[in-house]
Simulated scan of single mutants.
Amino acid sequence: MPIKTSIKRASGWLYLNSPLGRRQLRGSGVILMLHRVLANDRAADLPHRNELCVGPKAFEHLLVWLKKHFDCVPLMDILHPGTQHSERPRVTLTFDDGWRDNAVNAFPLLQKYQVPASIFLSTDFIGSRQRFWWESLGETLWGSHGEQPRMHLIECLQQVGRPLPVLMDDVDVDRRSLTLLHYLQSLKTLAPDDLSRLTDECPEESLPQALDWQQVRALEASGLVRFGPHGASHAILTGLDDQRLNEELSRSRDALLNGCNRPLPVYCYPNGDHDARVRQQVADHAFPYALGTGTGIYRGASDPLALPRFGVSQRTARNPELLSWRIYRGAQP
């Protein structure tokens, strides 16, 4: 392990277990951001999956660590703290998008350790065979569906002016995966219609990628999971005109009102992107809170429509002391 990483891990552990750390975190909340829990850890280790995916062993390791150092509470307990304050810092888990593996792989572990969570749904995908472009394009380019679909997609990407980097042919698996990660990030600037057409050129998987409404209601009935909106089509809200922004917010809000018994009064910005116009529209749609992707501790004084979160990757879940280091940095005034 690199010496810099060892120092961060040790410093994070000392912070959580020091009087200074406990004092700084008392009365505040840590909101974690996850996306997927895959069926195995080896798949989650690759760089193009690492940031959005964790494996079941790493996720369980994270939950055990969180239970040891934090009070694991529902999101609304952090946003609306009660009169009783534990001496331990509080943490809550949020999942973006609404992946089917949240129910299949994550929920059994949440249930085992009795850790509550909030899942934010891209509602157009729920109960449909509509696919997330990142997953479909990434796995097709990785070759998960065979060489012929991969070459076909490469041709389609060339037609929209996005040729594949040369390093995608690197024999080193990790370097090739890292190149794919950076390439997928660059595709975020494509128009939503282009991304949708490219996704349609990918092979159809045998199962839907997203949860269905029956799964949503079953998870909600457990008492451990609540749901909120993460856009309808997962379009980047800052890139929409006023009419489309209103439609996106209304459609996702109404889907949650129809599909859940107790939807959260919290919006979650797709890709974390927001500006003053988007925040005002979110507030006008009766959401007093919204989650971004900025890093920090929630103390109740920051903008409730730009709540900070700490992202959790496979690397972080394997080494949660690195998370405590980031919490230490985020807790500084």
Score class of each variant (00 low, 15 high):
Leu79Tyr: 14
Glu247Trp: 12
Asn261Arg: 15
Arg36Tyr: 08
Gly259Tyr: 10
Lys68Ser: 03
Ser302Ile: 10
Met151Lys: 13
Gly223Met: 00
Pro165Arg: 09
Asp97Asn: 03
Glu205Gln: 12
Tyr289Thr: 14
Leu184His: 04
Arg299Tyr: 08
Leu256Glu: 08
Phe59Ser: 01
Asp77Asn: 11
Val278Pro: 00
Pro2His: 15
Met76Asp: 08
Ile154Tyr: 03
Ser177Gln: 11
Lys57Ala: 06
Asp41Gly: 05
Pro89Gly: 00
Met168Val: 08
Val160Cys: 05
Gly27Phe: 09
Lys67Phe: 02
Arg23Tyr: 07
Asp124Phe: 12
Leu46Ile: 12
Asp124Glu: 13
Ile31Gln: 04
Arg251Ser: 14
Ala39Trp: 05
Ser6Trp: 11
Ser196His: 15
Arg299Val: 13
Gly55Pro: 04
Thr238Leu: 00
Leu181Trp: 09
Ala106Leu: 09
Phe310His: 05
Leu153Cys: 02
Ala191Asp: 02
Asp241Ala: 06
Arg279Lys: 13
Val91Arg: 01
Arg279Gln: 13
Leu93Pro: 06
Ser206His: 13
Glu204Cys: 07
Val115His: 11
Pro108Arg: 02
Asp96Ile: 02
Asp194Asn: 14
Thr94Pro: 02
Arg36Phe: 10
Trp142Ser: 02
Ala306Glu: 04
Ala210Gly: 04
Leu305Trp: 04
Gly27Thr: 04
Pro149Lys: 01
Glu201Trp: 15
Thr295Ile: 11
Leu249Arg: 07
Gly127Glu: 00
Ile154Trp: 01
Lys67Leu: 04
His234Asn: 00
Leu256Phe: 03
Asp124Lys: 12
His152Lys: 02
His182Gly: 15
Trp99Pro: 05
Ala276Cys: 10
Pro270His: 01
Leu164Cys: 04
Gln84Phe: 09
Ser313Tyr: 01
Arg150Asp: 01
Gln159Ile: 13
Glu205Cys: 10
Leu66Phe: 06
Glu139Asn: 12
Pro304Thr: 13
Gln281Lys: 15
Ser144Phe: 03
Phe227Lys: 01
Arg131Asn: 11
Ser118Phe: 05
His35Cys: 06
Arg329Ser: 07
Glu155Cys: 06
Val115Tyr: 07
Tyr15Glu: 00
Tyr15Phe: 15
Leu291Ala: 06
Ile7Cys: 13
Leu46Trp: 11
Gly296Tyr: 11
Pro19Met: 00
Thr199Lys: 01
His230Cys: 14
Asp303Leu: 03
Gln148His: 02
Ser186Leu: 08
Ala58Thr: 06
Asn261Lys: 14
Ile236Phe: 08
Glu220Ile: 11
Asn102Trp: 02
Thr179Met: 01
Arg9His: 13
Ser28His: 14
Ser6Ala: 14
Asp275Ile: 09
Lys68Phe: 09
Arg100Tyr: 01
Ser122Glu: 00
Pro270Gly: 06
Pro229His: 12
Thr94Gln: 05
Leu110Lys: 10
Pro116Ile: 03
Asp303Tyr: 06
Gly27Glu: 03
Ile3Gly: 06
Gly292Val: 05
Trp13Gly: 06
Ala103Ser: 15
Leu190Cys: 03
